[in-house]
Design a protein around this nucleic acid. Structure first.
Lengths: 226, 226
DNA sequence: GTTGGGCTTTTACATCTTTTTACAACCATT
DNA sequence: AATGGTTGTAAAAAGATGTAAAAGCCCAAC
């Protein structure tokens, strides 16, 4: 039976994941901090790790690095919070096989687990595509299509877009956007947000002068309606 | 038998809803993302949709919009998360028949489903349109028409208008208007209200100098008579 | 190094919205 | 009618936002 080790400090999250994985027929092991996770992974040789980045004692990144050094073949899927440096997680730097950004749907995580176990390359499962108007956003592959054509998005632009489509309908203040997209210690001013909004609108609105999706909330911020 | 389509990406939630709806004697169809939900709705012609706002591939709002465009008569109840209370408005703007905020009691959802089904698909646009004089206010679409032409209203102007038509006949003090329209911690003075009244009258009164709808109650405030 | 290009941020200015101000007109009370 | 407070109204001021262009930064190529 395929065994999955969940390393995560949030008990509710663990419970939810356990339920779903067991329902899918996996055997589930758990650890509630980085140190325990690492030793458990070495001792019990699970078939796959689901590993939270943010944890007490030892971060998921460190666990991943150390584990990959000793057991390079164990697949690891990282759980990252929004705003964390996704680039460093995947790819060669750390060695994770895939990642999922919180909050995620269980369904998506299951799909990625299966994909990784199948050793099929982590083709951007279309679970995290988002459609609105004539645009199509692939949140995982970081691509944006419109009318069949791919649009160029810089990383900041894309992160901002991502935050908007992840919070449809909510009024998002400039400060909140700066904090969530640019980071807590962001130097940029709020006008930077406006400048980026212009670019999002130019690229994604059918009629940028009269926005339909990226709406202004005067005195407050912006709202995405998709 | 009445058929209900549940479009929701959380498997546990779907399972729970299915149980309850089937117990109540409904037939349940399901879809796990927006895209699938939309095509299912078009293909299987359910009697009602329960539609989550936050979903992969296509948001509930977009599904709602597109479905209402093709099948305006299918009733839709939206599920919104607590943080996105703005969606209440948006969801209804887009044409949903009702909404429920997560977390909700199954009992409440069932009640609303029954209510919507009993109501026999009354278009919300009817109950949200307000006519007076030669003007027509669409409270949900946030549009004002007069003699077939659409008028420009700033958001504050519209909110004020909305409050008036929602309280016809009542005498509304400036302080009350400030509190209700501008907010509890509003810095503006009561004269600001007067300034806005001028603009409402200029835009909506046949003869602004001699108001017929937006009446002054000397020493107290204003009264809308529509 | 240095250079060049792409991306980000800032700046500047036009425009739009909201609030305040000033004063005239109005109303109620005496 | 005189008075003092209230309201109508336009215009000024203040504040926010849209937008293009300049300035700054970073990184890779030379």
């Amino acid at each position: 039976m395929t065994r999955i080790l969940i390393v995560e400090d949030e008990p509710n999250m663990v419970a939810g994941l356990r339920d779903n994985f067991e329902f899918e027929g996996y055997e589930v092991l758990t650890a509630y901090d980085g140190e325990a996770g690492l030793s458990r992974a070495l001792a019990d040789a699970p078939d796959l790790l689901v590993l939270d980045v943010m944890m007490p004692k030892m971060s998921g990144l460190e666990v991943c690095r150390q584990l990959k050094a000793k057991r390079p073949s164990i697949p690891i899927i990282m759980l990252t919070a929004r705003g964390q440096e996704v680039d460093k997680v995947v790819g060669l730097e750390i060695g994770a096989d895939d990642y999922v950004t919180k909050p995620f749907s269980i369904r998506e995580l299951l799909a990625r687990v299966k994909a990784v176990l199948r050793r099929g390359h982590t083709l951007p499962s279309d679970q995290d595509r988002y459609l609105f108007g004539d645009a199509e956003v692939d949140l995982h592959a970081c691509r944006v299509m419109r009318q069949g054509r791919e649009l160029d998005f810089s990383s900041t632009e894309f992160e901002l877009l991502k935050y908007f489509v992840s919070h449809p309908g909510e009024v998002l203040s400039r400060d909140r956007l700066l904090e969530e997209v640019w980071g807590y210690d962001s130097s940029p001013t709020t006008r930077t947000v406006d400048a980026h909004l212009v670019r999002l609108r130019q690229k994604l609105e059918p009629n940028p002068e009269q926005p339909r999706f990226f709406l202004t909330v005067h005195g407050t911020g912006y709202r995405f309606v998709g």
